[in-house]
Every structure is written in C-alpha cells, then in structure tokens.
Design a protein around this nucleic acid. Sequence first.
DNA 1: ACCCAGGGTCATA
DNA 2: TATGACCATGGG
Length: 213
Amino acid sequence: MAGYQTLLAAYGEQHWWPADTAFEMMIGAILTQNTSWRQVETAIAQLKAADCLTPQAILACQPERLQALIRPSGFFRQKSERLVTISAFYLQHGGVDGLRPRPLATLRKMLLDLHGIGAETADCMLLYVLDKPVFVIDTYTRRLTHRLGWLPESVDAYDAVQAFFQQHLEASVPLFQEFHALIVQHAKQHCLKKPRCTACPLAEHCLRSHHGT
DNA sequence: ACCCAGGGTCATA
DNA sequence: TATGACCATGGG
C-alpha cells in the first residue's frame, strides 16, 4: 500500500502507543474513546499521581474518587466503570501473560463481550499489547481512507474498512502498529482535521478525492 | 458560540 | 440494518 511508505518516509518509525506499561496502555485505550489524547494524558497523570494505575488499585478505589481522577478525559462516569471492568478482566485472566497465548479470535470476542469495549478499543489492545495482527480503524483512518479514494464514503462500517486494510497488507503486527501510528501522527500535524489540506505528504491525494471536484 | 476529539451503547423505525 | 440521542470535558 503506497500510503504507508509515504507516511513512513515523512515521519519515520513511531514505536507507538504512549504508555509505560501494558496495563496503562489498556487504560489509555478506554480513556481516549471520543476524546483527544491531551485530555487522556492529564487523566493518566492524575491516576499515576494517586498511585491508581494498577488493576488492584482501581478495583480498590472508591467510584467517586476514580471518577474525579479521570474527569478531564470526559464521560467520566461511564469510563470509570469501564476501567473497573477491564481491571477485573485483566486480573481474572492472569494479565498480559495469561491473555497473550490465546488465539486472536477468542481474545477479540472476550474483549467485545465486555460492556464499554467496542471494536476499536478491543483492536487497540489486541494490536498494541497482545501482539495480534488486527488493523485499528479510528476516525482518522476512516477519513484518510475516504479522502484518498481507497473506499467510497458509503463504505464506512468498521469491519468493512478493517477488511480493506487487512486484505491489502501482510498480517504483520509491527506493520499494523506503525501504519496506524503514522496515520494518527499525520492527522495531528496536518489535514485530517480539516476538510482539505494543501501542505502535507499526501496533499495531492487529499485535494483530489475529497467530495468530488 | 460552535465544533470536535485516537467511541460505545441503547432506543427506535 | 441503520440512523439518532446520549454520555462530558477542554481546546481551537
């Protein structure tokens, strides 16, 4: 896929998901649901300062206190419940070492069965901590895909967009990790936040395919 | 004042 | 199957 090489050349290796531990990564995946990463950084910093970034600590934390700690990330009532859910799940299955040996399809179903864990959140966890080759589809990825004309805007369902990427790429964990990270990096610096862009590595594509013309 | 952010769930047609 | 409402904070 040509876009990958273009982005890699422009931004270099990302070695992504900003987190110190696997568990912190999973917490971040929940906190960033429909929320900018800046807000998540604040919430995680507060959790860390309160020594509340382990599954045991989260399960032991008073709900109101947990809500207060993550308030900056928005949707704090729902998300506090989701943090409890993933903490219990994590401990119940022996942490990353207990989960990683299981097959991709099994793990994905287990995660999707959790209330508050949808396709993107599950796939982030699968790709970035459980080393499973699933392509993560987020808002930026959809926008890029449509803007470059890789798929028509009518094709927007999560599974359909994911299938497109997985059919056109080898099933490689490092490749999927880097590609998704590069898309996000690109979005932060350039055009995916706006209707159009004029000065970015993919400018010609962006200009060509957005809403006709 | 308005729009949006590295979504997900639920009710309704 | 497919929209729409709702959740909530902070930045641009």
